[in-house]
Design a protein around this nucleic acid. Structure first.
Lengths: 254, 254
DNA sequence: CAGTGGTCTAGACCACCGC
DNA sequence: CGGTGGTCTAGACCACTGG
């Protein structure tokens, strides 16, 4: 005998769970879509387990398994007794995980930021490939110097896809926040959810050295970042240079 | 009314689960202990879920939750249809995650190894602290050069606690494997389960440069490793130096 | 085919949070 | 206190692995 589908069909339109997938996997995908499409904004709470389970016509355990997937992905955060929340994006000065700079005596929380240059330009083949843009698309190109106590410490080159970051193409750069990601969120509605940072080593060019107040040829660490939004799309390319002697990072193996 | 304990008491000696802990948490701790004490050797399979659940007098779901904890810790590995296995320790040349060296044209799998020096010495305060040894304990100190195609690439200083690594104090170092961790496992019965690598930057001393066939003052990356066995005890300290221009690493943020 | 882990259910009860 | 997520049970059935 055929399995009964469910006498009261859940959420008209997303009835049938399993082609080749598990039910919780399909459920997770369904919830993921509702999150990335902004049905629940970062920081807000989802409906309770029981409500979601009823809505989708599954057992509590199955729903919990789906939520566990999204928690593991870093999309959700659960708090006992309070609820299930969509996680806010990257907040703090995440480049500081690679460098230690002194502010007076203590370690810095957030360096100051100053935009040296802002240009609209056409993306080269590598850039448009990385950002998933058509060839010849427009991007916003930024050069930025970050300082601690007026002392320059990090030099950055940032590339942003342009239809998306249009609001930043004309606003007053001297009024920008020192943290870009929360501003991306507020001004462009784009949440930076995760990033991949590729570290390598090099020597400063004359111009780079001048901006960082170091000697030409001074050793530096280069961080090449690709940052992704909630839906997994790459929405920022960034190259950061900092004094190699300020470099410090701890990696965990296995 | 008091809860009935379980008419057939499971595993005499470890009856009572919950002081302040969940049952699965306590179960996980119990299984973790049996693993670290060698009841199940790395690579071997545990009894089936059903058997373990019966043995401990818990429901299947609860036992699965306990196993999930140990899987997340990297202690166990589960394979659908095959079984649940104790994971083997770190195997490959894990330092290569930080450097790219060329072997002919391709990237290297495993560099050759040569022991430059082996000494038994007394641990200083920092060393005995890190290894959890009493002050004045003996340790084995190694200096080791690793090469690709006869070209030196990594210089290492390794410190091992001595009662544990006694078999290595006298054996012929020229016969040692190029990978130490599998040898630790085979010869000393110690499994290296995880490690913490602290990266920083520096310049080569004259002697270091000579061994690596670079110039004195050449930029280098220093990896300070603390490696841990299955029970979480630190059993190796290692400092590795390599050409900064060969450095490359990708970090994932959030 | 027998044995393993993976999925799913429908409940009960506990622990935490905030009002 | 009511609402939230966390723990636990006792089953049934599915999917993969190996002989």
């Amino acid at each position: 005998m055929m399995a009964i589908q469910n006498t009261l069909s859940p959420r008209p339109g997303d009835d049938q769970p399993a082609p080749g997938q598990s039910r919780y996997g399909w459920l997770a995908a369904s919830l993921r879509a509702r999150i990335t499409q902004g049905e629940w904004v970062p920081g807000t709470a989802l409906p309770a387990e029981a409500a979601l389970a009823r809505e989708h016509g599954v057992a509590l355990g199955t729903l919990r398994q789906a939520l566990a997937v999204l928690v593991a992905e870093g999309l959700l955060e659960r708090q006992h007794g309070r609820g299930t929340f969509v996680r806010a994006g990257l907040g703090g000065a995440s480049m500081l995980r690679f460098f230690r700079f002194r502010h007076g005596g203590e370690l810095t929380a957030t360096p100051e930021s100053s935009i040296l240059e802002r240009r609209t330009e056409l993306a080269g083949p590598a850039t448009s490939e990385a950002l998933g843009l058509p060839t010849g698309a427009s991007v916003l190109s930024l050069r930025r110097l970050r300082s601690v106590d007026g002392q320059p410490c990090l030099l950055e080159q940032i590339t942003l896809p342009l239809p998306l970051f249009e609001p930043l193409a004309s606003s007053d750069t001297t009024a920008w926040d020192s943290l870009l990601y929360p501003m991306f969120q507020r001004v462009c509605g784009t949440t930076i959810h995760r990033a991949e940072d590729q570290l390598s080593f090099g020597l400063l060019s004359a111009e780079q050295a001048r901006l960082l107040r170091l000697e030409p040829g001074h050793p530096c660490v280069q961080v090449q970042r690709r940052a992704f939004d909630l839906s997994g799309r790459c929405v920022e390319l960034r190259t950061t240079l900092g004094d190699a002697f300020a470099f410090q990072y701890t990696a965990h193996v296995r």
